[in-house]
């Protein structure tokens, strides 16, 4: 039987990798993939803690997180499409219209 702490540690590691991806990558699509990675790490943590407490509420929350992740991916990719149409690039450094 694997201790629950191992699952939580794995979740922390995956979340940190996703954070690094958001920070170091400039490709908007890869940034979105990193966000999905972070959401998944949190989902795994919810499942692990729900299992440790013997309650299924964590799984329901993961269900809702999945729905919000799908909505976020759809809206975000729509925004990327619109941005690409204006600038012909998905490099985040090129979008500096609002930069001070």
């Amino acid at each position: 039987m694997t201790p629950i702490n191992y699952y939580l540690g794995l979740g922390a590691l995956l979340f940190a990798i996703g954070t690094v991806g958001v920070l170091i990558r400039r490709n908007l699509i890869v940034v979105f993939m990193s966000i999905e990675l972070m959401l998944n790490a949190v989902n795994l943590t919810f499942i692990a803690l729900g299992r440790a407490m013997g309650s299924a509420d964590g799984q329901v929350i993961v269900f809702f997180v999945m729905i919000v992740a799908g909505v976020e991916a759809a809206v975000g990719l729509g925004i990327i499409l619109a941005a690409f149409r204006n600038r012909l690039t998905v490099n985040a450094d090129e979008f500096n219209l609002l930069r001070w």
Binding site: Y7, E36, Q59, A69
Partner: peptide, 29 residues
């Protein structure tokens, strides 16, 4: 992650993860 979820007795959510994420969101990407 889906396999780990199934290992944590969350069968339905693990399968949802495989179907919804890999089947729908990744295809959108």
């Amino acid at each position: 992650v889906a396999a780990l979820m199934i290992g944590l007795d969350a069968l339905a959510v693990g399968l949802l993860q495989a179907i919804v994420y890999v089947g729908a969101i990744v295809v959108l990407f």
